[in-house]
Amino acid sequence: MTALRPERESGTSYGEQSYEGAGALGEWYEEAQQPSSYEPQGPYASQEPYEPYVPPADDETVALRIPDPPESISASEASSVTRVSDVTPGGRAARRKAAKRRGGRHGAGARPSTEPADDEESSAPLSRVEARRRAKARKPSPGVLASRAIGEVFITTGVLMLLFVTYQLWWTNVRAHAQAGKEASNLQEEWESGKRAPGEFEPGQGFALLHIPKLDVVVPIAEGVSNKKVLDRGMVGHYSEGALKTAMPSAKTGNFGLAGHRNTHGEPFRYINRLTKGDEIVVETQDDYFVYKMTSSLPVTSPSNTSVLNPVPPQSGFKEPGRYITLTTCTPEFTSKYRLIVWGKMVEERPRSKGKPDALVN
């Protein structure tokens, strides 16, 4: 090696080499090999071990703190102040009142209220004047009683009207259809058995069946136009009394006049306004079928216009006596202010023995 190195002493190994002449560097090296045992010397030897200096906390730099109580609050009151919002301005009397509301001057529990509770008031005996006053206050005024009575009247009236409308528009039809159906069945049974012979009929007695194929109507024809005996039972009535008497279908000439309800009570003539020229109208009796064809109509006329039932009705278009049929009913619907008239002319008389006419077969 070319590096410089200290010379060896005789009898001394390399590991025990001496560094004589090294000076301050040698002394430093020896001290570095020993454990540190520094002790202060001189006048500071008896002082405490060194500690770093920590300056006292500056109150002005603390982020959150409780402020000192104002000078106007005593020391005993200051102990109850826990935050800035608890300090109540307005003098000592105001602060004392605020402290009482918060639970006492010194933070004690809330004092019981000296005011009587509601249940105590209700249980406390009342004077006669006070009891009368409260009873009068609880009693409804005349205006309230009157409004209640009027409201009940309106409700009752509305219910009755609803029941009446339901009866007229629904129940009367149900009952009339049942009565008319029973009468039609009785007629057909009697015709098949031969118990009934054609001739004069009593008011209310059924004697024929009216067919209007276009409207799908099959309804009994009874003698007379009484509401109670005929029309309200769902049947069609024959004008057969007094000045309104009309001919029977079997007559060689004449006008066979019929009346029926347009609304309620079976409403057999409700849609006769839909009939057009040429539509068939068939009257079935015990022995014959009488087939008519619709010729004309009168949409609106007065109920007193009885000329529509004449042997030759003036507004029908007929010019000479013949075998005609006249259907009459009320108009507009659900009223009886005017009358609707439909006329027809007989085109075929067919014995029952020959079977049904084409109008009832097709």
Rank of each mutant, 00 (worst) to 15 (best):
W191S: 12
E192Q: 15
S193Q: 14
G194E: 07
G194S: 14
K195W: 11
P198K: 12
G199V: 14
G199Y: 12
E200V: 12
E200M: 06
F201H: 13
E202L: 15
G204P: 09
G204L: 03
Q205A: 13
F207M: 14
A208G: 09
A208F: 04
L209R: 07
L210A: 08
H211Y: 15
H211V: 11
H211F: 10
K214T: 02
D216M: 03
D216N: 13
V217E: 03
V217R: 03
V217K: 02
V217P: 02
V218W: 01
V218P: 01
V219R: 10
V219N: 01
V219H: 00
V219E: 05
P220V: 11
E223L: 05
V225K: 03
V225C: 11
S226N: 14
K229C: 06
V230R: 10
L231C: 13
L231H: 14
D232H: 14
R233G: 13
R233K: 15
G234S: 05
V236N: 06
G237V: 09
G237N: 11
Y239F: 15
S240M: 09
E241I: 15
A243D: 15
T246N: 07
T246D: 05
T246M: 14
T246L: 02
A247H: 08
P249K: 13
S250M: 05
A251W: 11
A251Y: 13
T253S: 10
F256T: 13
G257F: 04
G257L: 00
L258N: 08
L258R: 07
A259G: 02
G260M: 01
R262Q: 11
R262P: 07
G266Y: 01
G266H: 07
G266C: 03
E267R: 15
P268H: 06
P268Q: 04
P268V: 04
F269S: 07
F269M: 03
R270P: 00
R270T: 04
Y271R: 04
N273F: 00
N273S: 07
N273E: 12
N273W: 01
R274W: 02
R274F: 02
L275S: 01
L275A: 00
L275T: 02
L275Q: 00
T276H: 00
K277G: 08
K277N: 04
G278I: 05
D279P: 01
D279R: 00
D279N: 02
D279H: 01
E280V: 03
E280W: 07
V282A: 08
V282Q: 10
V282M: 05
V283F: 03
V283Q: 06
V283R: 03
V283M: 08
E284P: 06
T285Y: 04
Q286H: 12
Q286E: 15
D287I: 00
D288S: 11
D288Y: 07
D288E: 13
Y289W: 14
Y289H: 08
Y289D: 05
F290H: 14
V291R: 04
V291T: 15
Y292N: 02
Y292E: 00
K293F: 00
K293N: 04
M294Q: 09
T295P: 02
S296L: 08
S296D: 04
L298N: 03
P299I: 08
P299E: 11
V300N: 14
T301Q: 07
T301H: 12
S304D: 12
S304E: 13
N305I: 08
T306F: 09
S307W: 09
V308I: 12
L309W: 06
L309V: 12
P311C: 03
P311F: 08
V312D: 09
V312G: 05
P314L: 10
